[in-house]
Design a protein around this nucleic acid. Sequence first.
DNA 1: AAAGGAGGTCACTAGGTCAG
DNA 2: CTGACCTAGTGACCTCCTTT
Lengths: 191, 191
Amino acid sequence: MSDGNATLLSFTGEKFEPCKVCGEPSSGWHCGAVTCEACKKFFLRSINGEDAKYKCIRNQDCVIVRTTRTQCQFCRFQKCKEVGMTNSENTNNPPVAEIFKRFPCAVCKAPSSGIHFGAITCEGCKGFFRRSIKERAPERYRCMENGTCEISAATRNMCRYCRFQKCLKAKIKSLPIRLNFKENLYLNTKR
Amino acid sequence: MSDGNATLLSFTGEKFEPCKVCGEPSSGWHCGAVTCEACKKFFLRSINGEDAKYKCIRNQDCVIVRTTRTQCQFCRFQKCKEVGMTNSENTNNPPVAEIFKRFPCAVCKAPSSGIHFGAITCEGCKGFFRRSIKERAPERYRCMENGTCEISAATRNMCRYCRFQKCLKAKIKSLPIRLNFKENLYLNTKR
DNA sequence: AAAGGAGGTCACTAGGTCAG
DNA sequence: CTGACCTAGTGACCTCCTTT
């Protein structure tokens, strides 16, 4: 999409983790990975054929950190590729999945994977909610304590009742639920 | 938009929402936005260089409503620009897209985006119909209920069968289907 | 030479799957 | 039963064509 990038990607006011190549503070997503400006520039210089000149005088396994990154171009470039940097277009923005990982699930606070049923949730809570309303009777969930169980990534499976309550509180919408695609399509793969 | 304006734009007998600038009842589309007469005049006075004199004595974030709109010219003009008012020609009619937004999609009642396949529909139903007839077998859609599912913006994805029936009922015409660009190109270059 | 509709694109998610 | 991963769509936005 030409620049519908203005969608989710523009929410990225967050901080990025350290440069994947050298460990320094990073400046964002460049060429397919979170890197510092220095490693970004290095990578961009390298991919124009420059890398053909790179030689490692040791065993091609030099450790790349801030203080050593200039000592072996070969291994630095190697690491750039290892962490996923690429030459292709459209790699200056993190994939949406990366963004969502930094938003906590509205139910259990684990890293989320997107907007599901109208709320930001993880895959686990998404699946739990779907199963609950489609093939179960969530009104039959019972809390063995007093209905105030904490729901975290570590504890979310301990009480279905409280997990489901937390889903409702998170404004997860039970409708519209799409009907079973395949049944609705009457898929017969022979034909 | 030369003035084929006599086409769709003359349908606009509808009521407009409140003035985008001050919230008062509006009188129509002026200079690129729905505004009241007062804000229209204010904007037209401002754009002749008048605005150079405007100063905000607060923080350039004055709230602009009916009762306050005359208290800060700077912020009022600011808001005019924010809501999209412009100096350019031909902004006294809403863009056609705006008009269609007020016509409900003949299939699902969501705001429509134009005439597609002979009926006023939204982008969603347009795409659904196109995919149905071009790359699927809509006769294989099956309703899991009894063929009377309600099709609204919220429920349109719940039953393909009923959505497709609604398309047919809305007189969406499946023909003529234009050759796609590539096929067309091929035919043209062939001879 | 502009309007506007057909068809294409692709970011994104609902629902399915199945090893654990 | 859970949840990471996958598939099949969906629809907002875009490009290019036809028509006026």
